[in-house]
C-alpha cells in the first residue's frame, strides 16, 4: 500500500482541485440528468454516493488504520434492517417498542446497533493481525448474514420490502431529488468527520499504529483502544450508509451483507487509493459507472471489468490517487 499522507498545505496540492471539481460535479450532474429526463441515472448516482459514503467509513480503518475489514457489508445490512424492521411492524403490528416510521429513530437504531456490533466483534477481531483479521471480520459478517436469513418474519432469504420510507419533518425521501440531496450532504458531512478525525491526535495515533505498532506501544500508547474506537466509528458510519441504502432501494435482503459485497467496498477503497480522503469516492464512482456502462455493452461485462481490475492493480500501484500523485512527481522532475 502506498501511504499518501495528507499534505499540510492541502490547497497547493493538485489533488485539492481535483477533489473540489469532483464534489462539485457530484452536486450538479445528477440533478441535471434528472431534470433532463434521466431519472434512472439519478438512481445510479444515488447508489454511487451511498456506497462512496460506506467506503469512506471503511477507509477510516482500512486506509488510515491499516485494519482490513472484510465484513463491512454487515453494517450496511444492519442499517438497512434498522429501517425495514420498524416500518414492517408499523404496518403489520407487533413489537410496539420499535414500530415506527420516524426517521430519527431509524437513524438512531442503525447507528446504535452497528456501533454495538462493531464494539463486540472488534474487541475480539483486533486480537488478530493481518490476514487473520481479514478472515475473522469476514466470519462475523457471515454470521450476521445467516442470522438474518433465519429471520423468517422479515422474509429471510427472500428479503423485505420497505413499503414506507423513513419520515422526517419538512422533507420527504420519496422525492428522488430530495433523497439524493440528503445522501450527498451526508457524504460531505462524513468526509468532513473523517478529515477531522485523521488530523486529530486520535487520528495521528491511529496512523502511527498502522505504520509501526511496536513503536507506538513502546511510547506507552494503547493501540488496541484507539483501533477499537476507530473500528466502532467506522461501523457506525457504515450503519448510517445502510439506513440511506434501505431508504433508497426500498428492498433489503441478506444478499446485501454477503462477503462479496464487503469485497466490493474494499475494492472501492483500494481502487481509489487507500488512506486518501476522497479515494473511496473516486473508487466508488469508477466502480459503479464502469459497471453500469459495461452492462450496456454486453451481458458478459464481468470479463472486461475483471481485466480492467487486474490492469489497474498492475499499473496503478496505490489506486487512482497513487496514479495522480505519480503523475505529479513526474511533472515536477
Amino acid at each position: 500500500m502506498t501511504n499518501l499522507p495528507l499534505k499540510k498545505n492541502i490547497s497547493r496540492h493538485p489533488a485539492f482541485w481535483i477533489n473540489t471539481i469532483a464534489l462539485v460535479l457530484l452536486a450538479v450532474v445528477p440533478p441535471v440528468l434528472f431534470i433532463s429526463g434521466q431519472p434512472f441515472w439519478l438512481d445510479v448516482f444515488t447508489r454511487l454516493v451511498i456506497l462512496a459514503l460506506a467506503a469512506t467509513a471503511l477507509n477510516l480503518i482500512l486506509g488510515f488504520g491499516g485494519l482490513v475489514s472484510f465484513g463491512h457489508a454487515a453494517y450496511l445490512g444492519l442499517g438497512a434492517y434498522a429501517v425495514g424492521i420498524p416500518v414492517y411492524h408499523s404496518l403489520y403490528g407487533g413489537m410496539d417498542s420499535i414500530a415506527s416510521f420516524n426517521g430519527f429513530l431509524h437513524i438512531g437504531l442503525a447507528v446504535g446497533i452497528s456501533a454495538l456490533f462493531a464494539l463486540l466483534t472488534g474487541a475480539i477481531s483486533l486480537r488478530t493481525r493481518g490476514v487473520n483479521f481479514i478472515m475473522i471480520t469476514m466470519a462475523f459478517g457471515q454470521m450476521i448474514f445467516y442470522a438474518i436469513v433465519a429471520l423468517e418474519n422479515y422474509g429471510g432469504d427472500d428479503g423485505l420490502t420497505i413499503d414506507v420510507r423513513s419520515e422526517f419533518p419538512l422533507i420527504s425521501l420519496d422525492n428522488p431529488l430530495t433523497l439524493y440531496t440528503v445522501c450527498y450532504l451526508s457524504l460531505l458531512l462524513v468526509l468532513l468527520i473523517v478529515y477531522r478525525i485523521t488530523r486529530s491526535r486520535f487520528g495521528l495515533t491511529l496512523q502511527g499504529a498502522r505504520s509501526n505498532e511496536q513503536r507506538m506501544r513502546s511510547l506507552g500508547i494503547n493501540c488496541y483502544r484507539y483501533q477499537l474506537i476507530a473500528f466502532v466509528i467506522s461501523g457506525a458510519i457504515c450503519g448510517y450508509a445502510g439506513f440511506l441504502l434501505g431508504n433508497f432501494t426500498t428492498f433489503i435482503s441478506p444478499e446485501m451483507m454477503d462477503w462479496t459485497r464487503s469485497g466490493e467496498l474494499m475494492f472501492m477503497v483500494i481502487l481509489g487509493g487507500a488512506a486518501f480522503l476522497l479515494g473511496p469516492v473516486f473508487g466508488a464512482a469508477v466502480f459503479i459507472l464502469l459497471e453500469q456502462l459495461l452492462r450496456e455493452v454486453t451481458i458478459h461485462w464481468h470479463l472486461p471489468f475483471g481485466i480492467l481490475l487486474i490492469l489497474s492493480v498492475l499499473f496503478f500501484n496505490g489506486g487512482l490517487a497513487g496514479a495522480v500523485s505519480r503523475l505529479r512527481s513526474f511533472k515536477n522532475q
Partner: peptide
C-alpha cells in the same frame, strides 16, 4: 500488499468465470 493481491485475484475470478 495483500490488498493488491485480493483486488487482482478478484479480477481474475471475474475473468475466469466469464
Amino acid at each position: 500488499h495483500h490488498l493488491d493481491h485480493v483486488l487482482a485475484t478478484f479480477g481474475l475470478i471475474l475473468c475466469l468465470d466469464t
